[in-house]
Design a protein around this nucleic acid. Structure first.
Lengths: 205, 205
DNA sequence: GCGATAAGTTATCGCGGTTAACTTAGCCGA
DNA sequence: TCGGCTAAGTTAACCGCGATAACTTATCGC
């Protein structure tokens, strides 16, 4: 019957960017709802917005650009989450551990988003933007600061705070990503395992 | 002109499995040659073997099954690589570090394969097979053994060797996978960074 | 009211995985 | 030796995907 899906009203002149926003929102919603990046097709997004597929290309060069932009929004959400957890501690080492804990928790609670942000290989053309996003994360900055405090307090051996922060990042990323990608592995009891790893990492530094 | 690609000779009766082997070999070759999992399409594999696409489905239920089987071969190669490095050390802690080092090196030298083995979310239907593969890795067994030796020697605090091994695994995986997925990040100088992380991990245990 | 142009749509391409239905070669028993 | 069963493929096609070229339509400024 070719029942036209309820077309949305066309934007006024000069308000073309409204569609852009709607596309981004719809894509984000779809990603979260389906929990499956493969379900997020240009056609599905267009359908959700109430527009035809080619219209997407008026606002995004290609699919990956659209996804990347959604991804950048997720970075912000992620960052806010981490920062929230990091604020409530006075001991520097505790602060580092708290950030690690919340990093892992975020990943486990938002596996699809985490997968997208940190587990997929970033294409060449997006490298600069993604690097800037990661470096711009106030969470990462806070981590470096917290590590520096640990070093100053003598809790960590002296060394470069940035390097140490990178090591901690890879550490929590390893836990998060393997728990996401291989959930069926006979992991030790999760909470204790995570605490044990965080303790060991911090003790060794 | 529809020049028939040089068709391979049809297998004799009862020798149907020869095609299966040829498909697996071609897929593996393609994966290694193109270094791009997306380039490995059913059609490309069929072309490489000299057969039509539907023939693939005589031997594999779907594409992922084919890929999984190639993946299982890669597990064996990976395992051999790790074991090779682990054999040549007497000190238990050095042995653990050596395994970590070679784990990371393998990943960095075979990023596409590593991505496939450890960075992609294993689908439900493959979970059992993949879990068995990982647990069956003699490399993992060797790691647990080495960790146990460290504990017995008093180099590591007492604890469950399997749990500790899991922690070490997530640690080296974190380094490997982030270096692969975010190569543009301003990482510290690689070799020193890796050594530093390995040292810290072992010191903390 | 009229033309320029922003904001879309229609129609179509080529590629991917996958399936149903057909063909062909070789072995086995009468 | 000949007929048929069946293993080992092929042909033709479907559907969904990302993407593009060419067309339409509504709105704004003059």
């Amino acid at each position: 019957m070719n029942v036209r899906s309820p077309r949305r009203v066309r934007s006024r002149r000069g308000e073309g960017d409204r569609l852009r926003e709607e596309i981004l929102n719809a894509t984000e919603k779809l990603l979260i709802a389906t929990k499956d990046i493969d379900a997020v097709s240009i056609r599905a997004v267009a359908e959700a917005v109430g527009v035809t597929p080619p219209s997407i290309y008026l606002h995004f060069a290609h699919k990956e650009e659209l996804i990347l932009e959604v991804c950048e929004r997720q970075f912000a959400a992620f960052d806010a989450y981490i920062r929230g957890a990091a604020g409530e501690c006075d001991d520097a080492v505790e602060c580092v551990k708290a950030m690690g804990r919340s990093y892992i928790r975020y990943g486990l609670e938002h596996p699809e988003e985490y997968r997208f942000l940190f587990m997929s290989v970033t294409p060449e053309w997006a490298a600069v933007r993604v690097r800037e996003r990661i470096q711009g994360l106030s969470g990462f900055g806070s981590l470096v600061t917290a590590v520096q405090r640990c070093i100053d307090d003598g809790a960590f051996a002296s060394g470069d705070a940035f390097t140490v922060a990178c090591g901690l990042w890879t550490g929590v990323h390893g836990i998060t990503s393997l728990l996401i990608s291989k959930p069926f592995f006979p992991w030790p009891e999760q909470e204790a395992f995570i605490e044990g790893c965080l303790d060991a990492y911090c003790r060794g530094l």
